[in-house]
Computed example of a mutant assay.
Amino acid sequence: MTEVEYFFSGWQPLGRIVVVGTLLFLSVVLLLRITGNRTLSSLNTFDFIVTVAVGAVFGRALTAKDLSLSEALAAIVLLIGLQYLLSLLKFHFKSFSKAITSEPVVLYSHGTLRQKAMRRERITEDDILAAVRAQGHTTLEEIDTVVLEATGNMSVFEK
Rank of each mutant, 00 (worst) to 15 (best):
L40Y: 06
I34H: 04
D47V: 00
L69M: 01
L14W: 14
V52M: 10
L31A: 11
L69R: 06
V54E: 04
S41R: 11
L69T: 11
Q12G: 13
V29S: 14
L31H: 06
F25T: 14
G15Y: 04
F25M: 10
K65D: 06
G15M: 10
F46Q: 04
T63K: 08
V54H: 00
G21E: 15
A61N: 08
D47G: 08
F48N: 09
S70T: 11
I49L: 08
V28Y: 01
I17H: 01
V52K: 03
L69N: 02
L14V: 13
T51C: 09
F25W: 14
V29M: 15
G36I: 00
S42K: 11
V54F: 01
L40E: 02
S68W: 02
L32K: 07
G15D: 05
N37V: 05
V57M: 04
T35N: 02
R38Y: 07
S41D: 06
N44L: 00
L40G: 12
G59C: 07
T45L: 14
I49Q: 00
V54P: 05
R16K: 13
I34Y: 05
L30F: 13
V28C: 06
D66A: 11
G55F: 01
I34P: 00
S42Y: 02
I34N: 02
D47H: 02
L14G: 11
R60L: 09
N44C: 03
V28D: 02
V19D: 10
V29R: 15
G59L: 06
G55W: 00
S27G: 08
L62H: 08
R60Y: 08
S41L: 07
R33F: 05
L24Y: 13
T22Y: 14
T22D: 12
S27Q: 03
L40S: 12
A72I: 07
T45A: 15
R33K: 14
L32M: 15
V57N: 02
L30A: 15
I34C: 06
G15E: 03
A61E: 02
F58R: 04
